[in-house]
Simulated scan of single mutants.
Amino acid sequence: MLEWINDFGWIIWLTVFLLLAVAEMLTLSLYFILMSVGALAALVAFLFGAELWLQIVIFCVVALATTVLIRPLALSHLHRGPADQLSNVDRLIGRSAVVLEAVSTGGGLVKIGGDIWSARVQGGTEIPVGATVEVAAIDGATAVITHPSTHKASGTAATTA
């Protein structure tokens, strides 16, 4: 068994690297990806002919060093900006939209900015094509819009679709 490890250790280190990378994709914690850097370092050590014990030490040292030194810097870059900053679809709430296909409680189409969204009206009757509405919420891939009669003329909804 030890002879096989000495001959094909690169397979083990590559497998460890891939498993740690997959674990990082599932957790997004920035621990596993930095540990996978240690596995790559051990792989390089194997390719240069290092003994198994040295490969394991290199893996541990590099994984620990990257976790201690790089993770805090990476997290600080990820958490830049104000805590209340809106992201993704939350930015669409309150924006104006133009109805492209009549919208009822059963569905329809609107254009928000440059994107076309499926939509449904939040209470009320069907909204005709060409009407300007306001996005009240986003429910999955559907924009929930308010009827023009309840459409507020606020500064946040002043952006055009």
Rank of each mutant, 00 (worst) to 15 (best):
E134R: 15
V57C: 13
V129E: 11
D139R: 03
R95I: 00
G49K: 09
D115W: 00
S149V: 15
R91V: 07
F17Y: 04
T125R: 12
V61R: 12
E101I: 04
R80G: 13
T125Q: 14
E101M: 03
L64M: 11
E51I: 01
V144D: 02
P128I: 03
V44T: 13
G81S: 02
G123N: 03
T66L: 09
P128E: 13
W4G: 14
R91Q: 11
A131H: 06
L109E: 08
T156E: 15
G114N: 10
L14Q: 02
L14H: 02
T105K: 09
L92V: 12
L14N: 02
V110Y: 09
L30N: 10
V37T: 13
S29C: 04
I70Y: 13
V16R: 05
L73I: 12
F46G: 00
W10N: 03
Q122G: 04
I12E: 07
S154L: 13
G113E: 02
G130M: 04
I93P: 03
G140Y: 09
G114A: 09
A39K: 06
F32Y: 03
A39E: 04
H77K: 15
G81I: 01
V135H: 08
A97T: 00
F8M: 13
H77A: 12
C60H: 05
G108P: 00
I138W: 10
L109Y: 07
A41T: 14
A141I: 08
R95L: 09
V144C: 06
A131G: 03
G114C: 01
L100H: 05
L92S: 11
V16Q: 06
Q85H: 08
I116Q: 14
S87I: 13
I56R: 05
V22W: 08
R91F: 05
T66H: 01
V89H: 07
A97H: 00
L100Q: 09
A157I: 11
V44G: 14
A74G: 07
I112Q: 01
I116F: 06
G108R: 01
A102L: 00
